[in-house]
Amino acid sequence: MTDIAVENLQITFPLYHGNARSLRKSLSKTLGRTLNTRFMHDNRDRVVVQALKGVSFTLQPGDRLGLVGGNGAGKTTLLRALAGIYEPVGGSVTVRGSIGTLLDPELGMNMDLTGRENIRLRGMFSGLNKEQTAQIEEDVESFASLGAFMDLPVNTYSSGMMVRLSFGLATAIMPDVLLMDEWFMAGDASFRNRARARLENLVSRADILVLSSHMADVMADWCNRLIWLDQGQVRMDGPTEQVLEAYLGRPLEHKADAEKPEEAPPAP
């Protein structure tokens, strides 16, 4: 039985190093308008940013949860918290089942190694034996169709090849719970069609999918439940259509418009 329970999850980032740290730069850039509410001082008078403030939800098998919200609303942080990368500062996260993460396109790949070597490393990390790794290698090779580039260092790849490789690799190992960030929509159109077929196959077999995206059509197609995150809090939680309409501020009928990536909605 696969399930996810998140209770009153609190995630706060310490900002130790002032401007020297890119974290603060990027956070204050994206959160500029919410500075007053998100930055606070903790009990030791350090500046911390509250990335998630009391998020609670539970997911059952078959749930396809979409996370929507503006930049810096806490979508990626929530995905990382579900993956167990950021452990909670308050509250709890419980995930029953194996977890697969597609959080960033590089997937922790080593840019100086060849595509094939990266596949083998990942197989090793996932505890696969030789035959299984070979099977994955073959699978990724046929999907990514990199040809001779499979044996060249990853940093010689074009960005499209990079996405193809990492996407193929990330989707080659099948988890119970699949956590996906929005980057995988970045490829070109022909790749997206192929990726979509592969991903749909994967998504249909994962017990639980948690997906963060700006693309309304992706959300409408793949999710049966949406959580709208706003400034680290759940602003709305419910069936896809309902939340999406409230989020976009218009009825869902305009599907053609929704093809374009949606930008963050104006803050209320």
Partner: peptide, 29 residues
Amino acid sequence: GSIKSMPTLHKQAGFSIALNTMNSTPTLP
């Protein structure tokens, strides 16, 4: 680790996958 409740899916596929990953139990497509 990752036996599915859905009987149509042969995810376990007869081979054993060492469960020594932090990430989870991977299964092959």
